[in-house]
Design a protein around this nucleic acid. Sequence first.
DNA 1: AAGCGAGTAGACTGCGCAGTCCAATCACTG
DNA 2: CAGTGATTGGACTGCGCAGTCTACTCGCTT
Lengths: 210, 210
Amino acid sequence: MAAHPAAAPEDCRSRLLSAAHAAFLEEGYGASVDRIAARAGVAKQTFYNHFPHKADLFGEIIRQVTAELLIALDDDGLNLRECLTRFGIVYRDKALSAAGLGLFRVLAAEAARFPDLAKTVYRTGPARTTARLTAVLQAAIDRGELRDTDADFAATTLLSMLVGAEHTRFLFSGELPPRMNSMRAGEIVDCFLRAFAPDIPSPAAKRNKS
Amino acid sequence: MAAHPAAAPEDCRSRLLSAAHAAFLEEGYGASVDRIAARAGVAKQTFYNHFPHKADLFGEIIRQVTAELLIALDDDGLNLRECLTRFGIVYRDKALSAAGLGLFRVLAAEAARFPDLAKTVYRTGPARTTARLTAVLQAAIDRGELRDTDADFAATTLLSMLVGAEHTRFLFSGELPPRMNSMRAGEIVDCFLRAFAPDIPSPAAKRNKS
DNA sequence: AAGCGAGTAGACTGCGCAGTCCAATCACTG
DNA sequence: CAGTGATTGGACTGCGCAGTCTACTCGCTT
């Protein structure tokens, strides 16, 4: 007596991946192979037919989630405020989503166990975003739309403003993020533009009511 | 053959506390009782003479670290920039210290296992700091030193600016924070003050492209 | 029909951990 | 000096987990 319906021939792997995706983001690396296999509706041995070690699957999932969370920053025609606001909305949506918070949580917890993975994620995620944003801001500085400061500092500051404290709050308090993200992102970008407005000319560079 | 020198009579408890302090911040809740006891130079049973369960000691340590990281925000005579800069320097020092990062890491990882503890820490830590800062900023708004916006939003924004992205970076990249904290805090406070400066006086029109 | 690749249930090993138990040993106090 | 309480090393139980192994069963190809 063994082998019931022999569930699925080839999508076993994809079912394992999506089960592991959910399990790791919810439980962290502590999600056991037994639970992941059960969640995928698959035998434990099937797991080991596809992945030599649990850590391999973990790395694959983390890298996948990181890629899913990457965001484009289009610098086309739009003016700076429009461009940054668009970016800010998406950035907040992703960073404060269940996946974003889960990834952050898991990675913060396991950075000691998987230092290389953590570094890789940082470089292909936040670091890349910062670099892209820095380029956009440097261009704005060159056009005179922003004051002449360190563009990297400005980028870091904007990214911090966009999610910083709320990130912490959702991480610890268990609440789930509301959907007023877009409004909030607009307010934040306005603050940012005031903070980095060029101050050379007259006391200008203010954004007047609609 | 048992019982070598019977190390210490009463400071066993304090040695356990400090060993656990270090172990939990380094390894998270996964730090085993055996390792903590060894680190304290104490027998495992001694641990259980002082604490009924591992989770009890964990909670005690976490609350203690949280208290250590709390910072005062003095609103005395100083002008606003001075006041915020002082605060910012200390805030960055603590939040980006080994203890601050460790606490954050551990709590993010274990928030699911200890939801009440996480909430408590959030309320007695970040939430309290935010509230205090909100009061200070509200006073400044009332004095006309800041524009008339939601003081809570302003407080959240400043706290985000002070540590947000760097927090993430140190958490993932393994680097340790440099000591240029004071300078950085000053720059950030200046940005904040520009972002929230009152805009009533100067009539200057729109943003000009130079 | 035979064979093969992949899947399945479940038992099994080895390990680390929380928490318990115990017999021996100190230090201190009456 | 006897007694008490805290401490100590070490053995021990029970549990959950990673990873292995076996015996069995499909579905497909030749």
